[in-house]
Design a protein around this nucleic acid. Structure first.
Length: 419
RNA sequence: GUGAGUGUAGCUCAGUCGGAUAGAGCACUGGGUUGUGGCCCCAGUGGUCGAGGGUUCGAGUCCCUUCACUCACCCCA
């Protein structure tokens, strides 16, 4: 093997690309129907954008970013997520001056230096959708509704929507301290990792798989007990709106988000067909992000969908590959040029046509037509060609008919359009 | 960063206790049919046994090192 792709960076081969196009096309249709507009943003940003936006102490910023110094001497980072960049673009171009409310979506690769495993790669693709400028809980529900609607449209079932409220900058620290105090008394029960988490991020202990840690936190206080009045009514309103839309959800008081900027509503959609990395999408509200990166006090909410994870869940029986409409077989040497001429003519008409480049036997050409799953084969026989005619074979039912070559385009368009 | 598993043909995999020229199926090419696909039959192409070192008369097989991939931890989409 010569040069290979680097670890965690994958090629998406033609046989897979149909799925990607389908998912992207569906996302565009659904999101634009909800009033979202596409935005395209760079994949490189100043490192500062992420360290301030995502949070210095997060795993992403601490150890997962692809950061380097460019020739101008500045520190740049391949984006590990899109929200901070989208917020930056919104501020930089003062989109709020036209309308404080911006509903944006974008597609693209993200980069995180992690050990790859099932559903986790160093370059991975996300679909992001964000609403900037609305603090009202109705929009939380609206965003979640759009997300679920999209997931159903691409054919996913057996999904579970989990929601939680993380509180705001007032009540989250209170909860954190409360939890810390509670667990400190039980710290002898905690594993080594959780001893550390107790200091750095006590909320994470909820995720620990160690039996004794689970026992320790079994009757730990919940976020909901600590929410301030405003966060409490906000969350109630979100739940109420979800119910109004007939969306089923599971309250997961243990759900924690890894990025510092999340506040209040947090949600995840998980699938039990995914393996260990079971979140297809995750998101939430981030009312502090804009202040961290720019100063203006603008609320936001959004989600990121993991493309690879989503695509791995797509129904298996669905066909995403486009097969040729026609294969032109030219068994005789004298008919080769005609195959080339005809194929080009048909290409200009948008008819997906293949032909043999190698001058192989008719049998071999037929075999290839079959392998490519061409619907029709046009056989340019020397006998027929002398009369200006050719044989058109329907590969599915084996029927054949002799046709005049000069009228071929019209006839094919008619036939192919029919089914 | 940590742990476990796996590396033999393009793909999926056999390969016994260390023994002779490393196999099968699929795929590919050609033929059986001078001009007709799938099924069948025949033949052919294709290998640095991941790489490097060691033990041995002899290594795909045993040992060491290394690389890659996979899964899991951590964390997240």
């Amino acid at each position: 093997m010569g040069i290979t792709a680097i670890r965690g960076f994958n090629d998406i081969l033609p046989s897979e690309v149909g799925k990607w196009q389908f998912v992207e096309k569906t996302a565009r249709e659904v999101f634009e129907g909800f009033g979202f507009a596409e935005i395209r943003i760079p994949i490189l940003e100043r490192t500062e954008l992420f360290s301030r936006g995502i949070g210095e102490a997060t795993d992403i910023v601490e150890k997962e970013m692809y950061t380097f110094t460019d020739k101008g001497g500045g520190s740049l980072t391949l984006r590990p997520e899109a929200t901070a960049s989208m917020a930056r673009a919104y501020l930089e171009h003062q989109l709020y001056a036209f309308d404080p409310v911006a509903k944006l979506y974008c597609f693209g690769p993200m980069f995180r230096y992690e050990r790859p495993q099932k559903g986790r790669y160093r370059q991975f693709y996300q679909i992001d959708a964000e609403v900037f400028g609305v603090g009202n809980p109705v929009v939380d529900a609206e965003v979640i509704l759009m997300l679920i609607h999209f997931l159903r449209r691409v054919g996913l079932e057996k999904l579970e929507l989990q929601i939680n409220s993380l509180g705001c900058r007032d009540c989250r620290p209170r909860y954190r301290e409360g939890l810390k105090a509670f667990l400190t008394e039980k710290s002898f029960q905690l594993c080594e990792d959780c001893q550390r988490r107790l200091q750095t991020n006590p909320l994470r202990i909820f995720d620990c798989k160690v039996q004794t840690c689970q026992e320790a936190i079994a009757d730990a206080p919940k976020v909901s007990d600590f929410l301030c009045g405003e966060c409490d009514t906000h969350f109630d309103k979100v739940k109420e709106c979800l119910s109004m839309a007939n969306l089923d959800y599971v309250l997961n008081p243990r759900m924690v988000r890894g990025l510092d900027y999340y506040t209040r509503t947090a949600f995840e959609v998980v699938s039990y067909d995914l393996g260990s990395q079971n979140a297809v999408t995750g998101g939430g509200r981030y009312d502090n992000l804009f202040q961290e990166i720019g100063g203006l006090d603008i609320p936001g909410i959004g989600f990121a969908i993991g493309m690879e994870r989503l695509i791995s869940l797509l129904p298996k029986d669905k066909e995403f590959i486009r097969y040729p409409d026609l294969f032109i077989a030219a068994p005789g040497k004298g008919t080769h040029g005609e195959a080339y001429r005809l194929a080009n003519q048909l290409h200009l008409e948008g008819i997906h046509t293949e032909f043999d480049y190698e001058g192989k036997s008719l049998k071999s050409q037929m075999r290839r037509a079959d392998k490519l799953k061409a619907r029709y084969v046009l056989i340019l026989g020397e006998e027929e060609m002398k009369k200006g005619r050719a044989v058109l074979r329907n590969m599915a039912d084996k029927s054949q008919e002799e046709l005049p070559i000069d009228n071929l385009t019209g006839i094919l368009k008619n036939k192919i359009g029919k089914d």
